[in-house]
């Protein structure tokens, strides 16, 4: 432990470092490099096989949480149990679907000395993919046209309005590009079964996929924006390799978003640049992306700055980020004892 940095215990979710990864492990790596704090990390998981649980060099302990669908009361009870044992200073939730519950509990958590820095419910709603087109229209941001589908009978109307191919998106995650009505029907049933209704049909936009990881101060100010172009994309559409790029239009877009929403905390803009150079906002994620450690490598440790925001400390704008920094993700087999898995699965902690 570096005696110059005070110790801070931080709990975070999103330990599912799988092929469609949660950001938790990357956020954890960033926090361990905090220049301001010596961070002790507590993992919060939903499944016993989330890989981050089995990274003891990163997480001192891990605890299972009730699913978001269990509601705020169950989450409150569990978090306070964990707090009693670990004396948490800050919690960083990293899943879209859990942010509402954590947000509702934020004042109560603060009363127990647990700090958060989360987007408000209104902010979450306005960038929700179901409301994204209206959000874009209101703020003059270019967003693909879309339509909500409540049944397969809505598909022909969507196709007539938006054209083929159609992009069908789940309420929270997953997207499928559909070239025929049959593909669209199959995708609709799969997405509805997994994420519920409605399913979103979105206009297909061809181009280059660019993402921006950002951090905003909740008062309309942007503290950091690091743009990344995907170099290698998995069959799930996730970046497996990427590179930081220099394009003034991208931080400018992030700045407009932060100012328009007075966003609190981390976010990710998923963008498409067309051959004509137009920038479309495809999605806005209300949390750090799984590739956030690239931003750290480029000189912007956004998660470490979030800790300071959560504790009410002043954070200055970041300076320039390094352009041309790349990440290449890798898969790594963790060999663990079955007893550890059993303990996590049965007792809910490790």
């Amino acid at each position: 432990m570096n005696p110059a940095r005070p110790r801070l215990t931080v709990a975070l979710t999103g330990l599912n470092a799988v092929d469609s990864p949660g950001p938790g492990v990357a956020v954890a790596r960033a926090l361990r490099e905090s220049p301001a704090y010596d961070v002790r990390l507590i993992g919060l998981s939903y499944e016993a096989l989330e890989p981050g649980i089995y990274l003891p060099d990163l997480f001192a302990r891990s605890y299972q949480l009730p699913y978001p669908s269990a509601g705020t009361a169950a989450l409150r009870t569990r978090l306070l149990e964990i707090h009693e044992r670990e004396q948490l200073d800050v919690i960083i939730p990293n899943f879209d679907a859990e942010l509402y519950n954590f947000g509702r509990l934020a004042p109560e958590l603060a009363a127990h000395g647990i700090h958060t820095f989360l987007p408000t419910a209104a902010q979450l709603e306005m960038r929700d993919k179901l409301n994204l087109a209206a959000f874009g229209a209101e703020h003059g941001l270019q967003v693909p046209a879309d339509m909500r589908l409540f049944g397969v009978a809505d598909i022909p109307k969507a196709a007539a309005q938006l054209g083929w191919p159609l992009v069908l998106k789940g309420r929270y995650y997953d997207a499928t590009v559909c070239h025929t009505p049959a593909q669209a029907e199959q995708a609709f049933w799969q997405l509805q079964a997994r994420w519920g209704a409605p399913v979103l049909a979105q206009q297909f936009v061809a181009g280059q996929e660019i993402n921006v990881a950002g951090l905003a101060d909740g008062r309309g100010g942007l503290l950091s924006a690091v743009p990344m172009r995907k170099l290698f994309i998995t069959d799930k559409g996730k970046a497996w390799a990427g590179i930081t790029i220099a394009d003034d239009a991208l931080p400018a877009l992030a700045r407009r978003f932060a100012a328009a929403t007075r966003w609190r905390g981390g976010f990710e803009l998923e963008l498409m640049r067309t051959a004509a150079g137009e920038l479309f906002i495809m999605e806005i994620n209300p949390r750090f992306p799984a590739w956030i450690y690239l931003a750290v490598g480029a000189g912007h440790n956004q998660p470490a700055a979030l800790l300071q925001l959560a504790r009410g400390e002043a954070v200055s704008d970041f300076n320039e980020y390094a352009v041309g920094k790349m990440f290449v993700r890798y898969a790594w087999d963790l060999v663990v004892d079955n007893a550890d898995f059993q303990q996590m699965a049965s007792v809910g902690e490790l």
């Binding site: 280059q208 172009r229 170099l231 990427g242 590179i243 930081t244 790029i245 220099a246 394009d247 352009v323 041309g324």
Partner: peptide, 18 residues
């Protein structure tokens, strides 16, 4: 002017990452 050109013949366009 933003294009990086190395002595080994590698070009990098920082605006696109190419």
């Amino acid at each position: 002017p933003t294009i990086a050109l190395s002595a080994a013949g590698l070009l990098f366009n920082p605006a696109t990452g190419d």
